[in-house]
């Protein structure tokens, strides 16, 4: 079910509970360009882990290190499920 979703959507949807849908999409777009040099629509499943790594400093600032790692672990698991 999840596999049919675009990788950028998986991450954005995962973050939207915290950041809101608009900021979650913007964050994915910004960090996909910064870390991977590609727009969100060109990401593949293998990009999810490096994208989440790139998002970690932002999440750590907003949620704290522990919760940021929880979210990243959860989304990584979600992506491979």
């Amino acid at each position: 079910m999840t596999k049919s979703k675009a990788p950028a959507d998986i991450v954005a949807q995962g973050l939207s509970g915290y950041l809101g849908p608009h900021m979650a999409r913007t964050a994915v777009k910004t960090f996909a360009a910064k870390a991977l040099g590609r727009p969100p629509e060109m990401l593949v499943h293998a990009d999810i882990e490096p994208l989440l790594r790139a998002l970690r400093p932002m999440l750590r600032t907003l949620l704290g290190a522990h919760e940021a790692d929880n979210v990243i672990a959860h989304l990584t698991k979600e992506a491979v499920a």
């Binding site: 995962g14 939207s16 509970g17 849908p21 949620l63 919760e67 929880n70 959860h74 989304l75 979600e78």
Partner: peptide, 14 residues
């Protein structure tokens, strides 16, 4: 409340 360790909530709207 926003920073809570319930991973499932990360997937749902607030």
């Amino acid at each position: 409340m926003a920073v809570r360790s319930v991973p499932a909530t990360a997937m749902a709207p607030a």
